[in-house]
Simulated assay, not measured.
Amino acid sequence: MVEEVPKSDEQKPVDLNKHRPVGSDGEEDEQLEEGEIVGGDVETLSSSSSSRPGTALTQHPLEHSWTFWFDSPAAKTKQVAWGSSLRPIYTFSTVEEFWSLYNNIPRPSKLATGTDFHCFKNKIKPKWEDPVCANGGKWTMTFTKSKSDIFWLYTLLAMLGEQFDHGDDICGAVVNVRGRQEKISLWTKNAANESAQLSLGKQWKEFLDHNENIGFMFHEDAKKHARNARNKYSL
Rank of each mutant, 00 (worst) to 15 (best):
D15L: 09
V14A: 04
D41R: 14
Q11A: 12
E43N: 07
D15T: 08
H19N: 13
Q11N: 13
L45G: 00
T44Q: 04
T44W: 00
P21L: 08
V38D: 00
D29L: 07
Q11C: 09
L45K: 04
Q11G: 02
Q31S: 10
E28G: 00
E33R: 13
R20V: 01
S24V: 03
Q11E: 10
V38F: 06
E33K: 15
K12L: 15
V22H: 09
L16H: 00
G40Y: 08
P21H: 09
G35D: 07
S46Y: 03
D25V: 01
E28D: 05
E34C: 08
D41G: 15
Q31I: 05
E30K: 13
S47E: 02
G35W: 11
Q11H: 04
G35I: 14
G35Q: 08
E33W: 04
P13M: 15
L32M: 07
T44Y: 00
E33Y: 05
L32W: 02
G39S: 11
E34H: 07
E30V: 07
V38S: 12
S46V: 05
E27K: 12
P13C: 12
L45I: 06
E28Y: 05
S50E: 08
D25I: 00
D15P: 01
K12I: 13
R20F: 14
Q11P: 01
H19F: 14
G23N: 13
Q31N: 08
E36S: 09
V42F: 04
E43M: 11
S24N: 06
E33P: 04
D29P: 00
T44P: 00
V38W: 04
K12P: 08
S50Y: 08
G26V: 04
G40L: 10
G39T: 12
H19L: 03
R20G: 01
E27G: 06
D15I: 06
S46F: 02
S48C: 09
E33I: 04
D41S: 14
S48K: 13
N17P: 00
V38E: 05
R20P: 00
G35L: 12
V38Y: 06
V22W: 01
S47L: 06
E43F: 10
V14N: 01
E27M: 12
E36Q: 05
I37R: 12
D25F: 01
P21D: 00
S48H: 09
L32A: 05
D25H: 03
Q31H: 11
V38L: 09
P21F: 10
E28R: 14
N17D: 03
I37T: 11
S24T: 09
L45A: 06
P13N: 15
V38K: 14
Q11L: 14
Q31D: 06
S48V: 03
S50A: 13
S49K: 04
V42I: 14
E33M: 11
D41H: 14
T44L: 04
V42Q: 02
E30A: 05
V14L: 15
E33V: 09
E30P: 07
S49V: 01
